[in-house]
Amino acid sequence: MTEPDISAADVHDRLNAHQIVLIDVREPAEYAAERIHGALNLPLTTFDPAALPVGGDRPVILQCGSGKRSAMALDLCRKAGVEVAGHLAGGIGAWRAAGLPVIRIDPATGAVRDVR
């Protein structure tokens, strides 16, 4: 792991260029309510580093709400000997603060909305 803390702008650019796999380690309800488009959900409560899609041509970056849980998942990966590129510094909160788009579910209608 060469750069554990990766900025929102860098993750955004790499994700849009299809250069990474983004793994959201928040719980399913959090992921369902709001997420980064293209992120896969592997919750920390059941997180297994062996289940990560590593070894391909796209490195894995972890993400959560604030960076705390993704740092914990990063540590679990390190202990298991599973290489990941790092995690989104500041989580989805930093992503939103940078003005980057998220997908949200409208609780009144159930509609999926892209928002900034």
Rank of each mutant, 00 (worst) to 15 (best):
M1T: 05
I61E: 03
P43G: 03
S70G: 12
G90Y: 02
R26N: 01
L40T: 08
D48P: 13
A98K: 03
R104G: 03
C64L: 05
E30H: 11
P107I: 05
G99F: 09
I36P: 00
V102L: 02
I23H: 03
M72F: 01
D10N: 09
A111D: 11
R26D: 01
D106R: 07
R78P: 01
T45E: 15
L100I: 13
L42G: 03
A85N: 07
A51N: 14
H87D: 06
L42E: 09
T45W: 08
D5P: 00
P101R: 09
F47S: 10
F47K: 06
V115L: 15
G91A: 07
H12C: 04
A9K: 15
G81E: 13
P43S: 02
C64W: 00
G67H: 10
V82P: 07
K79C: 00
G56K: 10
D10H: 14
V21E: 12
G99T: 15
V54M: 08
D13F: 02
P53T: 04
A71Q: 08
P59W: 03
D114Y: 09
A89Q: 05
R113M: 11
P53E: 10
I61Q: 03
M1K: 01
E83A: 15
M72A: 15
R96H: 07
P28A: 09
M72N: 10
G86L: 06
I92M: 15
G110W: 04
R69K: 13
V84N: 11
M1F: 02
D106N: 15
G65L: 13
M72W: 01
R104E: 14
A89C: 00
T45R: 14
D24M: 13
E3W: 01
D48S: 14
D114T: 13
L88Y: 05
L76W: 10
A73E: 12
I20W: 02
L44G: 00
L42D: 10
G55K: 11
V54T: 15
A111G: 09
R116H: 08
I23W: 03
V112S: 15
H12W: 05
G86D: 12
R69N: 10
T109G: 10
N41M: 11
A85I: 02
D106E: 10
E30D: 15
S66D: 09
G93D: 09
G91L: 02
E30C: 03
L52G: 07
